[in-house]
Each structure stands twice: as C-alpha cells, then as structure tokens.
Design a protein around this nucleic acid. Structure first.
Lengths: 227, 227
DNA sequence: TTTTTTAGTGGACACTTGTACACCATTTGT
DNA sequence: ACAAATGGTGTACAAGTGTCCACTAAAAAA
C-alpha cells in the first residue's frame, strides 16, 4: 500500500458514442437479464441478493440503486415484461384462423414454442407465482387475471360459448390458463432433446384442454336450454 | 469480564420427568413448527435460515444440527408430514357415501375445512411446490403424484369412468388435483371472516370440478363407443 | 465556455449467516 | 457406582449482505 493511488482506469466507458440515458438503459437491461440468468442457473428469485445481481451484471453494488430501490422493484419490472410477452402470445393466437381442424393441437405447439423461447421469463413467473415476496405474488396474479380476461373477451368476439354468462366464461378461461401454467412448468423442467417425452407431454396437454372445452360446451348447452 | 464465570443456569431442563429421546423429539417438533410459524408470518421457506428457525424454536443455532443436517433436510420432513395429512384427507373422503346428491359440494366443503385446519402445511407445499429448492420441489411433486394415483385407484374401485384407460384416468385425476391446489392457494390468502367471498370462491371451485367431470364423462363415453 | 447533473466507483459500517470446536450436565447402559 | 453417550450451550470466525458517504468523470445544460 506504499506509493501513489493506483492509476484509475479511465472507466473505458465509450466503446460507442451512445447518449447517456441510452447507456443507462443498457446497464438497466443488464441488471434485469442478470437476475433472469441467475434464476436460469437454479436460483430462486426471492433468494437473490442485490449484490449478487449487480455482480452478475458486471457492475458495482451501489450502481444498482441508480435503477431500482431494491430487488423487489426489479422483480416488478420483470413481471411487467413477462406480461408484455404474454400479451404478444395472445396477439399471435388471435391471428389463427377460427376453428380449422387440429386447431387445438396447433395452439399447443405454438404455446410450447413460446415457452421454450422465453424460458427464463416463464421460469420466473411460475416460480414466483406462489413462492416468494408478497408484492411480486400479487403483481403476477394481477397479470394472470388480466390475461384470463382478455382470453375471455376473445372467446366472446368469436362467438364461442355465447350462452355462458360472463362469470362462467371467465371461470372457464381461468381453468385454461391454470392448465397452461401447469404445462409451462412441465415444459420448463423437461430435459432438452427428449422428443418422445415432449410429445407425450403435449398430447396430455391437448387432452386436458379438450376435457375443459367439453365441459364448457355442456355448460353452455345447459344455459341455452334454460333460456 | 472481571470476576468469576457467570453462574451457569442449571438449564432448567426437567419441568417434567421425560425420557431423553422424548425430549429430543419435543425440540425437533419445535424446530419443525418454528419453520411453519415463520412461513405463516409471510416468509418463504427457501429464505429461512438455520439460525432464524433455531431462534424461533427457542434454541441455540448449533442445536439444529442435532436434528437436521441443513434446512433442506428439515423441509423434507415437512413434506413428509404434509403427505401424511394429505393421505388422511383421502381416507376421510373414502368414507363418504358414494354419489348422494350434492356430494361434490359437500366434498368441497370438507376440503376447505381441511385446508383451513392445516393452513400452514398447505401454505408450505403450495409455496414450495414450484418455488424454491430443487430437492423440495421434487419431493413435493412426488407426493402430489402419489396422491393423484391413489385418487385414480379410488375412482377405479368405485367403478367411476370404468371405460377410461388408466393413463386417461390419471390425467383426469391430475386435473382435479391441480384444481384442488389452485383452490388451496385461494383459500389460504382469503381474508378471514369474509363469508361472502368464501362462498363465492367455493361455488367457483364446485363449478370447475363439475366441468372436469363433465369432460371426463364424455371422454368415458367416447371410449365406450369405440369398444 | 463554464456549470450542473448523474451513472458509476470505492471504501467502510453494522449486521446476519453457516459452521467449527471445546465444553457441560444429564440421561443411559453397564 | 461408574463410564459413555448425547442434547444443548457459548464463543469464535470467515464470508456475505444492504446501505451510507464521498468521490469522479463524462454528458448535458447554461
């Protein structure tokens, strides 16, 4: 510790001439991604520390505060982003033609692809949905409800189960979403490149949805008869 | 730090003349209960520390090691206990007469009571089912599968959905269990003494089960027709 | 130009955590 | 009666945590 202060690195900050706030957004994104990456390695979000995330993002712990007040706040942003992803999925689904043969099976395949593509996000939401911090749990539940409602609205627009009162329709959609989330966790901890297991699993998934839709049809008929 | 060693409390150990291993079991139970209690106060099991649990149990941290190697091992015991609770529920359900009117609604009520009675256990399993440590997750999943299989066997014995192949029957039971677990989390974070909300929720629950059973019936018929 | 803002740094703090070792006191087996 | 086993205690340590403060250098504003 003898001599002068060790030469301060010039902080090698400008590999490219980015505007300041643009670079801020970059490290912010790095922090978010760092949290997701850590979860991808088996850690649960709730157990992640501010320091840990900062380290993974290649940034000093204090820098964290320039972006989030605490880890929960970062989590909320992750929830929000996952919500956007979900809504994109719904938008894609809306583009599908109404009721061609094997539509169900096709939807399932699309969903599977979507989950595998956004693996970390789904890992995050299905792990924190009933696991960790109260605030996150509520936020996620909120998003899921939102998603459910939009799905119900889509059903209405397509004239599906037209006789069902809104409450019942929402309940049916709730079941579908529940099944989707359960399937997501199955997809997530499926060892990769196990085509056989995967096919088996998605066949199961299809059957489950079929059962729900059967039941919904019958419920719909019941309401039709009592009119 | 001047004078003599402070008088060692005689450790006030024998309020009652219990055998040694009996007393060991007591503190062991205290540790388990302590963990559950902490979860009851909003903490997630994964985030519990050995010291925290020991403190809550009124015991010095080191004493923990006399009972469990680490917190995960304690968690496994909790899973096991929850499994026993679940099987007790199933045994009660088996005693119910077959198919009297409103049997579904009655079962739901029994289940609700069961969840509220074993609140902390259910809180534990539904929170760790897809949240925290990998080992716990697997153990819980194992127990749930076991429960599902027993339910399927019960269905068989009662001759319900007799035409369904075993795989399909298990899938149906899987859906029922999934619905039960979802309902459990709803029951758990329902504010107490909200009879109206509770009634609404259980009505929803009944309807969901009804839908599944409708669907199962139709599936059963399909298999009957193709025979 | 000069001044102000601000994303990021570095060091320090009080605190908690898991674990190791030596120790005790009572129960247990002989 | 004596020795062994054992449930529980106390102290200590290295490592990790969240947060505070002072600082810097580059970008933005004046």
């Amino acid at each position: 510790m003898s001599a002068a202060i060790v030469a301060r690195r010039p902080a090698l900050k400008n590999p490219e001439p980015l505007t300041r706030s643009a670079r801020k957004d970059v490290t912010r994104a790095n922090l978010l991604q760092a949290a997701l990456n850590l979860m991808g390695e088996g850690r649960s979000f709730t157990s992640l520390g501010l320091r840990e995330i900062a380290r993974e993002a290649g940034v000093v712990p204090n820098a964290f505060y320039r972006h989030f007040r605490n880890t929960d706040e970062l989590g909320l942003v992750l929830v929000e982003e996952a919500g956007i992803t979900l809504r994109r999925l719904l938008r894609e689904a809306r583009k599908m033609d109404v009721a061609p043969r094997d539509m169900l099976r096709r939807s399932v395949r699309v969903y599977q692809e979507h989950v595998k593509l956004n693996r970390l996000q789904f890992l995050f939401i299905s792990s924190e949905r009933s696991g960790g911090s109260r605030i996150l749990r509520l936020a996620i539940r909120n998003d899921v409800t939102h998603f459910t409602n939009e799905m119900a609205q889509d059903f209405r627009m397509r004239g599906l189960y037209a006789r069902l009162p809104t409450a019942s329709l929402q309940m049916v959609c709730g079941m579908i979403v529940m099944t989707m989330l359960a399937a997501a966790t199955d997809i997530l901890d499926l060892p990769p490149d196990q085509a056989l297991l995967e096919a088996e699993m998605s066949e199961n998934f299809v059957q489950q949805l079929r059962i729900i839709l059967f039941g919904a049809t019958r419920l719909n008929d019941a309401f039709a008869a009592s009119a």
